[in-house]
């Protein structure tokens, strides 16, 4: 039986796509569905036989100001971390894409991707050593300057931001780099030949054309940071209670999986709403 060209294409697409979709089904869709199911139960079925369906886990979110407060705090953390990553990462990506050529670019790239090669827990613990009072920073400054300093950032909000920015910075650099590199240099040359100063070229040409990459990077950072729990716990000390740590408590401290699952889905919903609200900007960028 001879296949038409279209059928062959469809078959090929199916074969090529199926591993990815199979993986997504098994690794993402099924666990998420299980969690969605759990979030409507009164108790996790493997701890007791006495369970029933309920929406009380969702109403629990609104019954105490604790959860909305913490969610707000986590979203604020996300916004701060994303902003820092963009401010640091975008210029870096610009220089890599437009100013540096050849082998040195490869070497610099390697340095940016390097954090990905170490376990995130190791990274956070090494920050704990650096940020601690009477730690490496203090000793270094004291060695250079003849003053007694004590910079103790450990166990504070800035410490959490520093740790998270370090972890997520490569995302924004990589996505911005790809977007910036795709901008045709002749466009910039043309603008320059018509007498546009750099500021105009940047605002009217480079920024709009690279906005999709910037937006993608920002989303990649904003979403996981909103649910982060390990970094706040280790670097935040007593200030380290966030929405993510409360979800973790539900799973590991009180074994209240249904409430933990419900809180997770509320976070997912809130993040989706925020992304939805931002989508006109993203669409415009495209």
């Amino acid at each position: 039986m001879a296949l038409t060209a279209r059928q062959t294409n469809a078959l090929r697409a199916g074969v090529l796509l199926s591993p990815a979709y199979l993986w997504l089904t098994v690794a993402v869709f099924l666990p998420l569905s299980a969690m969605l199911f759990f979030s409507f139960l009164s108790a996790a079925p493997f701890t007791t036989d006495d369970w029933h369906f309920t929406t009380s886990n969702y109403t629990a979110f609104f019954s105490r100001s604790l959860y909305p407060d913490l969610l707000g705090r986590s979203l604020l953390l996300s916004a701060v971390v994303t902003l820092c990553c963009v401010i640091i990462g975008y210029p870096c990506a610009y220089v890599l894409a437009k100013q540096i050529k050849g082998r040195s670019r490869e070497a610099l790239f390697l340095l940016i991707i390097l954090p990905f090669w170490s376990n995130s827990l190791v990274r956070i613990f090494s920050w704990a050593i650096v940020l601690r009072g009477n730690g490496i920073i203090d000793h270094t400054i004291e060695a250079i300057l003849p003053v007694d300093v004590s910079i103790n950032l450990m166990f504070s909000f800035p410490a959490i931001v520093i740790g998270l920015v370090h972890s997520y910075l490569p995302y924004v650099i990589l996505t911005c780099y790809l977007a910036l590199q795709a901008i045709d240099d002749t466009l910039i040359d043309a603008a320059r030949s018509l007498g546009a100063p750099f500021r105009t070229i940047f605002v009217r040409l480079i920024l709009p054309l690279s906005l999709p990459g910037l937006a993608a990077g920002a989303v990649l950072i904003f979403v996981p940071v909103a649910g982060s729990f390990m970094e706040p716990r280790i670097l935040g000390g007593r200030m380290g209670t966030f929405y993510g740590t409360v979800i973790e408590d539900q799973f590991v401290a009180v074994f209240n999986w249904p409430l933990g699952a419900a809180l997770s889905f509320i976070l997912l919903a809130v993040v989706l709403v925020i992304l939805g609200a931002a989508s006109p900007v993203l669409r415009h960028a495209r």
Binding site: L66, L70, R73, T241, V246, N256
Partner: peptide, 14 residues
């Protein structure tokens, strides 16, 4: 559960 909630309140209220 009640103890955990109390503890979370205390940690969040600072």
């Amino acid at each position: 559960k009640a103890y955990l909630e109390l503890w979370q309140d205390v940690k969040t209220a600072q």
